[in-house]
Design a protein around this nucleic acid. Structure first.
Length: 390
DNA sequence: CCTGTATTGAAGACCACACTCGTTC
DNA sequence: TAGAACGAGTGTGGTCTTCAATACA
């Protein structure tokens, strides 16, 4: 975690949650406050914040080092050439709504003991209740049972073959990562593993129904309390590999990229079809633990960047592009690095939020037919209800 | 090929209000 | 010169409206 980074909302606490919809880093308290404000904000998909860069949503959690990493940091830190390449890693799933601390821990399959959280009232009066039992998620208001939450949690340990077996046999609860060293690379090569993508969740609409509002504050306030370990400094994780790790591998001509695809089907399998990307040698030697679609369920470039996927994969012109000899001269390596940094600077996302606080306010502000209304005015408009007030 | 109608998608307007920034004292 | 006070302008998101482009008879 980058020191000095503060919650975008309160500006006081250290952020641990990344809200993709808000493009904001929030502490747990503000995450709950902001996303329990109304039914719309409850839909925001959130995940952990990358411990290393503190600016991207975490995609995987290194079980060896107890750190959450975005795709970029994961690649950098677990490059095949590094000692950490064999670290067992676990995908980190998004959540929405307002789950309790215990449920969060369950979503991420982390060992978390929070008796106070278990006793915490989960829902507010008048809003559908949710509970989790052995048979899945139930909605007290009569909504269809939906196992999306547990699916997300259960698919977390996809790098563990024992876990995979458990998943397939329906043994869903109390999954714990086995302390074995296995590269997460195997994950991307395991198409049989059930993987709930954002698309899946949104398409069936179930993700919206499983959570409820809870005005009570979370019983844990910081990262240490949730995960039981302090943040591990970047220096402890990586040997200053940084972006250089991108360029320490054998290069491959871009022109050959497409031509190689048929000969390397695993490449296109690992990368989701919708991304239509070619990931050369990097794919084979590194540990990509997620398909892109599994990360975001979206396919535009901005979102891939948002979820931590290197822009190198999006440009079709990665810096490990080859010289004729197929190896990097020191000069071309430098130029490749500079080109990469330049492209990174020029990266543009779909929408840039200049003031996170204003966005947070707008998210919780009352509306009628999409328009803001005065705070004191009668408010009987429910966007999820057909009977509207005109 | 031209015309009229229906459909689709994109762009902009609208709203309240916290916040930013420049000006004045 | 520094700080406070003030006011004008900005930015934020969901929904609706408008209009251009396209498809079809």
């Amino acid at each position: 975690m980058i020191m000095g980074a503060l919650c975008d909302f309160c500006g006081e606490q250290r952020p641990t949650i990344y809200c993709r919809s808000d493009a904001a880093s929030l502490c747990l308290s503000c995450d709950r406050n902001v996303h329990s404000a109304n039914t719309l904000s409850q839909r925001h998909m959130r995940t952990l914040l990358c411990d290393r860069c503190a600016s991207q949503p975490a995609a995987v959690r290194c079980l060896e080092e107890n750190t959450s990493l975005c795709q970029n940091c994961d690649w950098n830190g677990h490059a095949a050439t590094s000692l950490a390449a064999g670290h067992l890693r676990q995908t980190i799933n998004c959540y929405s709504g307002c789950p309790s601390s215990e449920e969060l821990a369950r979503i991420w399959s982390f060992d978390f003991d929070a008796p106070s959280a278990a006793a915490e009232p989960n829902c507010e009066e008048g809003i559908s209740m949710m509970s989790i039992n052995d048979s899945g998620v139930s909605n007290h208001c009569g909504a269809q049972q939906d196992s999306s939450l547990l699916d997300m949690a259960n698919t977390s340990l996809i790098s563990d073959p024992h876990t995979r077996e458990k998943l397939n046999t329906g043994d869903e609860m109390n999954l714990r990562p086995l302390p074995t060293h296995q590269p997460a690379q195997s994950v991307s090569m395991a198409p049989k593993v059930p993987c709930v993508t954002d698309d899946d969740m949104f398409n069936d609409g179930s993700i919206y129904e499983n959570f409820c509002v809870d005005d009570a504050g979370l019983t844990f306030e910081n990262y240490e309390e949730l995960f039981g370990t302090p943040h591990i400094q970047t220096e402890q994780l990586f040997d200053d590999a940084g972006i250089d790790s991108y360029f320490g591998m054998k290069e491959m001509p871009a022109a050959d990229c497409n031509e190689l695809k048929p000969a390397q089907p695993e490449c296109s399998n690992a990368v989701s079809a919708d991304s239509s990307l070619c990931v050369p040698a990097r794919q084979a030697i590194s540990s990509i633990s997620l398909s892109f679609s599994a990360l975001t369920g979206e396919s535009n470039a901005g979102d891939h960047q948002d979820c931590g996927v290197s822009p190198l994969l999006l440009t079709g012109e990665p810096p490990w592009l080859p010289g004729p000899e197929g190896s990097i001269a020191s000069g071309s390596r430098g130029s490749a690095l500079s080109r990469y940094m330049e492209k990174k600077k020029r990266r543009k996302f779909d929408k840039k939020i200049r003031y996170a606080s204003r966005k947070a306010r707008a998210d919780v502000r009352k509306r009628v037919k999409g328009r803001f209304v005065k705070a004191g005015e009668a408010y009987d408009y429910d966007p999820l209800n057909d009977t509207r007030s005109y």
